[in-house]
Simulated assay, not measured.
Amino acid sequence: MRRQSLGFVGAVLALLWALPAAATGCTLGTPGATVRVSVANSGRATMLHLPRGFARPAPLVLLLHGSGGTGAQMLDASKLADTADAHGFVVAAPDAGIAVQKGFVWNIPGVPSVTGKMPGPGDADDVAFLGTVVDWLAANHCIDRSRVYATGLSGGGRMSSWLGCVAADRFAAIAPVVGLRAGNPLASDRRVPDPATCTPSRPVPVIAFAGDKDTTNPIQGGGAGYWQYTMATALTRWADLDACRAGPVQRDLDAKVHEVRYADCRAGAEVIGRITRGAGHVWVADNDAMWAFFARHQRR
């Protein structure tokens, strides 16, 4: 009788193991498709793209739109869904929490948005919301918590920088595009970042992309009140935060792209800036290079 019972249990287990992963896995979307989904009980939504051939748990890339934009527009402009299909990661592209005309802006405390308005206590807490997105996708068996990354354009690049500063426990690496910051400009000298506003709890690998003809967020510094200090200053500050012992090493990757790299950083972090000559305030990221960088890093 015991032998028969064990045989029956074995047969049941074999049947369960043979069920498709989707039966107990992520059911929020269809692999290869992009859908708009409501996020838990947040009252907010995100565009979600599960890659073709989706296998769970997958890495997650949070894609953050620029000021005045939307997640849907950012997903289309970046072509990151195509990169996700090629490499097998999930993309979530939510809308920011502060409505502006036909789009949204991100709430980065202590600095004015592109409207000139300083976010107040009544505005949505975007750091908390993005944490909810991560938790919700993990609870639905869609993503691997140890491989969560953030990128974004312009205001979304500044927001992904802010996540590195204040939510390093959630993100394995960040990749700001025309928007790298390392904390808010210091009130007494806006040419440098305020160290009190960027205190990551762990080393954060950073790869940043920019164009040298960007007049909105100029790599040479200046510009709007939220910008001010140079991209080189931001890279140096991240290298200090990550305790990098080598660099900056500079080289031309090709005729158009120049790279600045800091290495030998604490906990295996890297800090890299890639500048495209002649490019302005657009998505200048090399998506495959971005993913290759992300894939080297996992949150411990």
Rank of each mutant, 00 (worst) to 15 (best):
V204T: 13
A263R: 05
T30P: 15
A246T: 14
R299Q: 13
S160H: 11
S154Y: 00
R44S: 15
V249Q: 14
A285R: 02
G71E: 04
A285L: 08
G66R: 01
L241P: 15
E270K: 04
V90K: 10
T236V: 04
N184L: 07
S38D: 10
A175Q: 13
T151L: 01
R261A: 14
T236E: 14
V111A: 05
A81R: 12
S160K: 10
A23P: 00
G225V: 06
D125W: 00
Q298P: 13
P31D: 11
S146I: 02
A168C: 07
V284K: 08
T132A: 13
A295Y: 00
Y149S: 03
I98A: 11
L63T: 08
G164M: 03
V90I: 05
A234Q: 09
V111M: 05
R181E: 11
G183W: 07
A99D: 06
M47I: 05
V133S: 11
Q4F: 07
R277S: 08
D288Y: 04
H258D: 05
A239Y: 02
K213Q: 11
R296P: 07
A139F: 08
A196H: 10
A208R: 06
A138P: 09
C26H: 09
V100I: 05
C244Y: 06
I108N: 14
G155K: 00
R261P: 10
M47D: 15
M1E: 14
K117A: 14
A81C: 10
P200D: 04
P185V: 02
V9Y: 10
L16H: 02
P57Y: 04
M74A: 13
N287Y: 07
A168I: 00
A22C: 00
A239P: 05
F293I: 03
C26P: 11
A168W: 13
R274L: 05
V134C: 12
L163G: 10
L180K: 03
S5R: 10
A22K: 09
D82I: 01
R251F: 05
Y149G: 02
A263H: 03
G247N: 12
A167D: 12
T151R: 03
V192S: 13
A269F: 00
T132F: 04
P193F: 01
A187Y: 02
R44M: 13
L241K: 14
A77N: 14
N41E: 14
L60W: 11
V35A: 15
A182V: 03
S188Y: 03
V260L: 05
V284C: 06
A18S: 14
S161I: 03
L163T: 14
A99L: 06
R36Q: 14
G179E: 01
D123N: 07
M290A: 08
L6K: 06
P20K: 03
D125T: 06
A124K: 05
G223E: 07
F54C: 08
T230D: 06
A93M: 08
A139R: 09
C265R: 09
W136V: 09
P59K: 06
G211S: 10
P205I: 00
G32P: 10
D123F: 01
A92D: 09
A84N: 04
N140M: 12
A21E: 07
P112N: 13
A279H: 03
T24M: 04
V249I: 05
H297L: 01
A18H: 12
A269M: 00
